[in-house]
Write a protein that binds this DNA or RNA. Structure first.
Lengths: 256, 256
DNA sequence: CGTTCCCTTGACACCGATCAACTCTGGTGG
DNA sequence: CCACCAGAGTTGATCGGTGTCAAGGGAACG
């Protein structure tokens, strides 16, 4: 959990702007914000922070004086149970907000753990507090991002509660592909998928063994290739059909 | 889905104030707002709306010009799957907000359905938009309520994904009892629980038959009484232990 | 006083969990 | 460059928690 500080000056120093690429891409694609509108956000990045795979980014019960934005790498929201099992409650990809809720709530109700090496952009809380006045459309966009996360959560609950394993995993792969595309991180039908089958199991409420068998099935049907942390979806239409996937919940736009 | 309009004048007309009892109780208990601080909220209620059990309050894909606050009765957020099965994503009790998300997002990603006869307080959207300026602590409280709903969602996902049926149902009963208490609607260890076993099954990812058997088990162990839509918890400590229940996620307070 | 949900119970089937190797891959150090 | 090692993936055999199907009983409501 090494801390490293970079240039936090106002303006669009190229290092800072590069850090925020996935976030700005996401906000442009999904909300329709223009680069000039996004400038206030980029200029608020005060420092960056690195973490290695397995490190906790923030723990249950903690509070933070920074809003953390994932700039590179993957992370997960994790809830731990008394018996040692865990439920992954969200996968965070570049451009996702870690802890916007701490603007309003007192402490985290879950851990956030880095799944790969990770770079975080840190935005000071007090800078955020004046954001609604200084750049209302950006503040709006951040809340929108949080509300889409909640819509994702409802989809996950639906997957775990009512879809069978094959359909649930297909749905997860469709969603991740779609989100990576929105963040500008997909290469056509292929994405980096740097998570283990056990982590996929913790997200879908299954066991690692069963996830493995289901993936074999999807591979066997020629729907996907997944190896060396690279996912390629060969027949996205059919995969979406198996999943009952409808991307509307990820597209929810800003109100006119 | 009859619409009925009542006095929407400013001030604390007793009818309007009475409507909001559970909401104000909740906000007082959970956030520590005082009655004078809540006055602006009560004065914003523009009309009320009634619905009968089974009626849709708002449908997936719809938008609304009102924020609906549940004043009496129970409702549920429901996601429908292509095969006809359903996942209940939230139980809404008096004092809960139905569609705050529509302040920012364009359309609903799920249905909200009345589970009993229901009274809704309607707050006009444009009145809400100026709320952060006029009564920042109330606006804060509303967002807080939405974020607690998200924390609840994470708990549900954890229940469905990683707890067994007995533990998941015990957890649900603990949560509902706690929330009813916070809304000022509990009588010691007893609450109204006007939902069917099938609905409890749709919320926990189980079948009605299995929910029935689990409830029999909890009854047989002397932990609860549940009949005629009345739930009494006889041994809340042991029920909480079975559930792995920790109410922190429902208590998340306003930031100092 | 019948109709309609809802609850209850039993027998049986099955999806996914568990247990237990074994293999493969990537990274590390000699 | 190779030997080693830990983590991740793979596979088979078996178990068990829930689902499914089917039927009957009870309570609310007109």
């Amino acid at each position: 959990m090494a801390m490293r500080f970079v240039d936090g000056s106002t303006g669009s120093g190229s290092a800072t702007a590069g850090l925020c690429k996935p976030l700005t891409t996401k906000l442009q694609n999904a909300v329709g914000l223009s680069p000039p509108e996004l400038a206030p956000l980029i200029s608020m990045i005060q420092s960056t922070r690195q973490a290695r795979a397995g490190d906790a980014i923030i723990r249950q019960g903690e509070k933070s004086v920074f809003l953390h934005v994932l700039a590179s790498g993957w992370a997960a929201r994790i809830k731990h149970l008394p018996d040692g099992s865990r439920q992954i409650t969200a996968f965070l990809i570049p451009g996702d907000l870690c802890d916007l809720q701490l603007m309003i709530l007192e402490e985290m109700d879950h851990d956030i753990v880095a799944l790969t090496a990770v770079t975080l952009a840190c935005i000071a809380e007090d800078a955020l507090e004046s954001l609604p006045l200084r750049a209302p459309e950006v503040a709006h966009a951040l809340w929108r991002s949080a509300l889409v996360d909640e819509a994702i959560l409802r989809q996950w609950l639906t997957s775990v509660g009512r879809r069978d394993a094959r359909s649930a995993i297909a749905h997860m792969l469709c969603e991740l592909h779609f989100r990576m595309t929105t963040a500008g991180l997909a290469r056509d039908d292929a994405i980096d998928l740097p998570i283990t089958q056990a982590q996929l199991a913790d997200a879908t409420g299954l066991t690692g063994v069963h996830v493995n068998r289901v993936l074999q099935g999807l591979r066997g049907d020629g729907l996907i290739t997944l190896s060396r942390r690279q996912l390629t979806i060969h027949d996205i239409a059919r995969l979406g059909e198996i999943a009952g996937f409808d991307a509307t919940y990820l597209r929810l736009k800003r109100k006119a």
